[in-house]
């Protein structure tokens, strides 16, 4: 199976005081990885590096075999939009748009034609199809979480990155979100990386990277 993500000798610094060195890793299609660690250990930094929202100080990030180091800002944005789906910890949406428009926004900005069928299929599988015309600000936290997962999968990304997707959820909902994410990624054949300090996910994903 092809490597979806490969990290080699990755290092990132916030000024001179805070430097993170990350272990090498390889992630293949359909694989799941749980990145655990205490607060401030660099979990979100690593996720942002994988999402190409940050540029490493040194080391390599290869996405589907392509080195992302030499890419321009525009090329990075294009590849991120096509290949990476991000589920944010906070619910980031364009508040003036409704659920369906927020979903198809991912198509529009990645220069793809609006895939309404995909939006409807995803929302059906995530049980939010009745909310498609609803303004985003009228949704509950749990509903927003599902819309966030659907949006991350809109462009059939090869890599899905989820930042603390179960934080502040009770056990029942924690498990539900985990199942939604993993099932959706399986259907999409996407590799999944979950960054969390939520110990409850430990027993659910055996492939783990613990940052220390």
């Amino acid at each position: 199976m092809e490597d979806v993500l490969r990290l080699e000798n990755l290092k990132f610094s916030y000024g001179v005081h805070k430097t993170f060195t990350f272990p090498d890793l390889i992630l293949k299609q359909n694989e799941q990885l749980l990145i655990l660690g205490n607060s401030g250990i660099g979990k979100s930094t690593l996720l942002h590096l994988m999402a190409m929202l940050l540029r490493p100080e040194s080391g390599k990030i290869l996405l589907n075999g392509k080195d992302t180091a030499g890419l321009t800002q525009k090329e990075t944005g294009h590849i991120r939009a096509q290949e990476v789906g991000i589920v944010f910890q906070q619910h980031h949406f364009v508040k003036s748009l409704n659920v369906l428009e927020n979903l198809t926004l991912a198509n529009y900005f990645s220069n793809q034609s609006q895939n309404l069928k995909k939006a409807k299929d995803l929302s059906r599988s995530l049980e939010i199809d009745h909310l498609l015309k609803q303004p985003i600000y009228e949704l509950s936290g749990g509903e927003k979480q599902r819309v966030g997962i659907a949006r991350a999968l809109m462009n059939d990304p090869s890599l899905v990155l989820a930042d603390e997707p179960t934080a502040s959820l009770d056990d029942k909902n924690c498990e539900a979100v985990y199942h939604l994410l993993t099932e959706s990624c399986k259907r999409n054949k996407s590799a999944l990386v979950i960054v969390t300090h939520d110990q409850r996910l430990k027993s659910l994903i055996p492939n783990q990277l613990i940052l220390s």
Binding site: A51, Q73, R80, A81, H92, F93, V94, K95, L105, F109
Partner: peptide, 18 residues
């Protein structure tokens, strides 16, 4: 107030010029 919306758009593939 909506810097996150702009950042989100860029994360989804919008260029800064867009």
């Amino acid at each position: 107030e909506e810097q996150e919306e702009k950042a989100l758009m860029m994360t989804l593939g919008a260029s800064r010029t867009t």
